[in-house]
Design a protein around this nucleic acid. Structure first.
Length: 256
DNA sequence: ATGCCGGGTCCTACCCGA
């Protein structure tokens, strides 16, 4: 089974990139982040023509997640359980497919709106850790993947690519991610490649790609049973070479 | 210390991203 994640930074700008990537890599499930549109504006027919059914959790202008699947699946949640009812940010989709539960997330960045924005990020991570613990307690085979907006260790961002006080590397953000790992989840990329730089994002500015000044902030966390069946987990750097690419590349996870 | 780029939108200067 092949499950992928990709922050596309606007699906309307990246429709053809995604279509080409689906044809080239043939994932069973592809989770998308930052689609930046409402469901009605999502180019679902393009992907349907390639054999993929779309489910969209959209909003105007910002955020927005979706899943494309070529296997049967059911959407079980369109928002992170535990958040206030009036939270309007589209950042979470949970599905059941092929006997596993898969959660696609676009975790808040936490750098805007000062400490209030950072508190929103931490609370979001707290609720996500709760959700993971609840699912692990029922022995559900689980994968949580997407744009986590956290670089787990200092090895996960190029020197100078971020300020040490950035919300992506603050100790509080890292501690929340660590809580998910302590709950029993395995960081798939690091299970395959334990050391060294493995980036998933390069800023558009300051020639970050050319200098390989990247970040590892897109992750896949696996429950113990899925971790035992992990075959490969790798960002597809080729996508960053395309014309008008997203600043993130897709990450592909293969499970036996 | 700041802007660099690039997406969005109240269409045009400003918000957000990481």
């Amino acid at each position: 089974m092949k499950i992928a994640t990709w922050n596309v930074n606007s699906i309307r700008q990246r429709e053809s990139h995604v279509a080409r990537w689906l044809e080239r890599r043939q994932p069973d499930l592809l989770f998308l982040q930052e689609i930046k549109c409402e469901a009605a504006a999502f180019p679902a027919l393009t992907f349907q023509g390639l054999g993929y059914q779309a489910e969209i959790v959209g909003q105007k202008s910002y955020n927005g997640v979706a899943v494309l699947s070529r296997i049967p699946f059911t959407v079980t949640h369109r928002a992170l359980p535990g958040l206030p009812e009036d939270d309007a940010q589209s950042r979470y989709i949970e599905v059941e497919a092929g006997c596993i539960t898969a959660i696609g997330i676009y975790l808040p960045n936490g750098n805007s709106r000062g400490e209030e924005g950072f508190a929103y990020k931490l609370n979001w991570m707290d609720r996500l850790a709760d959700r993971i613990e609840a699912l692990l307690a029922t022995d559900t085979p689980l994968i949580v993947l997407g744009d986590f907006n956290v670089a787990p260790t200092d090895e996960d961002y190029a020197k100078g690519a971020l300020s040490p006080t950035d919300a992506l590397v603050r100790p509080e953000s890292r501690a929340q991610l660590r809580r998910m790992v302590w709950a029993g989840m395995t960081d798939a990329i690091r299970a395959i490649e334990p050391d060294g730089p493995v980036y998933t994002f390069w800023d558009y500015q300051a020639a970050a790609w050319e200098r390989n000044s990247g970040l590892r902030i897109d992750h896949a966390l696996l429950s113990p049973d899925l971790a035992e069946r992990l075959v490969s987990a790798e960002p597809d750097r080729m996508e960053r070479e395309q014309q008008q690419p997203s600043d993130h590349v897709p990450v592909m996870i293969e499970i036996a």
